[in-house]
Design a protein around this nucleic acid. Sequence first.
DNA 1: CGCGTAGTTGACGCGTGTCAATTGCTGTGG
DNA 2: CCACAGCAATTGACACGCGTCAACTACGCG
Lengths: 225, 225
Amino acid sequence: MDITPSAVGRELDFPAVASPGSALSALESLAVPARYKNGEAVYRCNDPVDSWYRIVAGAARKFASTADGYRHIVDFLLPGDMFGFGTQGVRPFCVEAIVPGTLIIRYPRRDAEQLADADPQIARTIREATFDSIARLQRRMVILSRTRAIERVGAFLLEMADRGHGAPSHTVSLPMSRYDIADYLGMAVETVSRALTQLRTRRAIALRGVRRVQICDRPALAPAP
Amino acid sequence: MDITPSAVGRELDFPAVASPGSALSALESLAVPARYKNGEAVYRCNDPVDSWYRIVAGAARKFASTADGYRHIVDFLLPGDMFGFGTQGVRPFCVEAIVPGTLIIRYPRRDAEQLADADPQIARTIREATFDSIARLQRRMVILSRTRAIERVGAFLLEMADRGHGAPSHTVSLPMSRYDIADYLGMAVETVSRALTQLRTRRAIALRGVRRVQICDRPALAPAP
DNA sequence: CGCGTAGTTGACGCGTGTCAATTGCTGTGG
DNA sequence: CCACAGCAATTGACACGCGTCAACTACGCG
C-alpha cells in the first residue's frame, strides 16, 4: 500500500523550498507545521476556508467525489506546492495525504491576508504563486483532453518528471497508487497498467520498482506521433 | 505538444468581479477598447505578456496548438471574463475572437501592476478573482475527466447555462461552432453532434436553432447517471 | 442560383471499460 | 522466521462506445 522505505526516506529528506526573498520569511512566521498519516485528510469538502497550505515533504491528493461514488483527482500535491487558496465560502474539494508522514505547513488565512495587505511584496508573491498553479492547471487540461491512453500516461510521466525537484529528470518516483493515477487521468486502472507495460515494451520507459519509472525515450512520451 | 515547461509563461483569466467598487474603476482609467473580426487574433502564442484583457461583447477562444495539427481549446471567453493575466514570460496560448465584432478592452500590464502595488484593495480584488479562476478551472477538470461523451456534453451545456449572464437559465446560446466544442471537450465533432441529438431524443434538451439550446431536464444533464 | 462551410447521420474498426483471474508485494501474527 | 491475509498491480477475454471515413443535408453568401 505504501511506497518502499527507501523511497520514503528520499521523499522526506527533501529540503524546504528556498524562499525567494525576505517577503516569504514574514509569511513563515505564521507557519504551523503538521504531519499526516497515509490517507489522512488535511481538509474535507465543505470545510470553511480558514487556512492556506504548503506541502514540505511527502505527497497528497486533491479530489472531488460525486454522489454516484465516482472520484476524480484534481491535483497531486508535491513538496513545494502551495494549495488551499481561497477567500471565503467552503472547500470544493478534499485533500488527503497519500504518503505516511507527509509534512504540511498551515498558514492561518486572516493573518496571511493582513500581511498581504500591508506588504505589496507579499501580495505579489502570493499572486505569482497562484499564477503558477493556474499555469499548471491549464497545462494539465491540455493533457487531459488527449483521447489516447498512452498519450495521457506519457504526458503524466513527463509532468511528474518535470515536477520532481532536483532529482535526475530521467528517473521519476510516483508516490501515488495506480488507482490514484487512474482517477487523475480519467481512465480505468487496468488501462493505466496496460499503457505502462506498452510503454515499457516500446523501450520508452523502464520500471525500477513498482513506483519508480526510468524515462528512456523522452520524445516517445510526447504526444506528437 | 508544444507546451514545454520553459515556454509556459504565467497566464490566467478570471471572470469580472460582480462588485467592482471604486478599486476597479481606477483600473478602468487605463482601458483601451478594440473590436475584432471573426477568427482574428487578440494575441498569439509566444507573444510577450504586456497587457491584461476583459471581454465586453461577443466571444473568444483560448487554445493551444501542437506540432501535429492538434488543437485544444482551454477556455471560452464570454462577456465579463477577464483574461491574459500574467506577470512575465510569454503567452502559452493564443486567443481568437469567434464572433464578428467582438469587443475587448485592453489594460497595459505595467500600469495595472503599479496600481495593484499602490492599492491593497486592488491587489485583493485581483487575488480573489484569481482564486475564483482556479476554482473554475478545477471544476472544468472534473468535467473533462468524465469518460462518457454525453456526460461531457451535458456538463458543458450546464456550464454555459450558468455562465450565461442574466439570460433565462433554461435557454443557452452557443456562440462557438461544433468544432470548437469538440476541441474543448476533447472529442470528435461527430460525437458532439450525436450526443446532442441523443440528449434531444431523451427530451433533456431542445434545439431552438442550431446554436440555441433549451434545457428541459436539468438533472438529466448532471453527471449522476 | 451555385458554391462553401457547418452540421447531421450512417457504417465500421479499434481502443478502452468492464469483469475476471493471477501474480506480486507489504504488513501482521503465530 | 515463516505463513497468511489483504491489497496493489498486472494480464486476459469480451462487449461497446467512440474515432474515423464517408455521404448527405442545411444554411449563408457571393
